[in-house]
Write a protein that binds this DNA or RNA. Sequence first.
DNA 1: TGCAACTACTTGCGTACGCAACCTTCGCGG
DNA 2: CCGCGAAGGTTGCGTACGCAAGTAGTTGCA
Lengths: 168, 168
Amino acid sequence: MKTETRRTPPEPRWLDDVEMAAWRGYIETVAALGAALDADLAPHGLAIGDYEVLVRLSDAPGHQLRMCDLAGKLRLSPSGLTRRLDGLVKGGLVQRDPSSDDRRVMLATLTERGLQTLTQAAPDHVESVRSRFLDQLSLTEIEVLAGAFNKLRASLETGSCSAPRDPQ
Amino acid sequence: MKTETRRTPPEPRWLDDVEMAAWRGYIETVAALGAALDADLAPHGLAIGDYEVLVRLSDAPGHQLRMCDLAGKLRLSPSGLTRRLDGLVKGGLVQRDPSSDDRRVMLATLTERGLQTLTQAAPDHVESVRSRFLDQLSLTEIEVLAGAFNKLRASLETGSCSAPRDPQ
DNA sequence: TGCAACTACTTGCGTACGCAACCTTCGCGG
DNA sequence: CCGCGAAGGTTGCGTACGCAAGTAGTTGCA
């Protein structure tokens, strides 16, 4: 749309130049960055989504999490997580264990092989994040970004399942 | 792709707290923000992707663009764009016109109805972007974000089709 | 104790998208 | 002109995911 302020019923406060730069920049950077990170991780046979699953599990006590909690952390729907795990289980990186506490619950558990894969991939991924993201920015910018994302995230907070708020 | 460092990795430079905050914040904000904007736009019967198509067309001379150029601007694959247009064409918001210059080319053209839909949706969308994004941040933050995204985008530049670099 | 309501997960179905294969058309060297 | 490679677009196929419905198990409440 043109940044034209013509007659429009209510009150469309169009974006000024800086706002537009921030917004368009956001939109386009997100797409490009996601694609680049995915490509960087491909040699390890993992998609970003897979990697995120492994990270969350490796962070968890006993290297395992309830499906529901994991879905919350990953912002995936239950069915989405089920099927993502299908792939990881088939690859032997994760296994499903029924919970003894609550027999409705399935625990996703990182296998030895999964941990090994993650351990191999993590340094490369971190390096990828650095080269694509952090290295391009000054310390000040990184600090401002961290603060800004924190604000944005807080204002978008929803919450699902019975997942306890995820720290960090 | 990346510097090969395997086998007794020479100290992967892990992320410190600020870096991690920026990165995790980015990851989680992107997901939440995208979902929120999509939801805000749903009442107009448009997905964000549809909206983006309409915006690009409305910006173009004659309200039309070659498929290939449009795909470049939207970072969509040719087939992805074909099918997204299918939906918009079926909805009467866009029409396909064969180019008279080059008979390989299809021109996507914004219809009167498409322009009308965009005109109705745009103020709401802008308001959505404001309330979810810009209003949460200070002017300084917005400026820093704009600059940061600009740097990131520049370092990720690829280019596709014969699309001329898209300004702004 | 018994049943209704809720929770955790899975499955069926629909959508969005990328890749590869496939036409058509263009442009170029002979 | 012919042939050939390249470019623009569409279609077939596979993957990822969300929603709604279904199943199994649990909890609350009388």
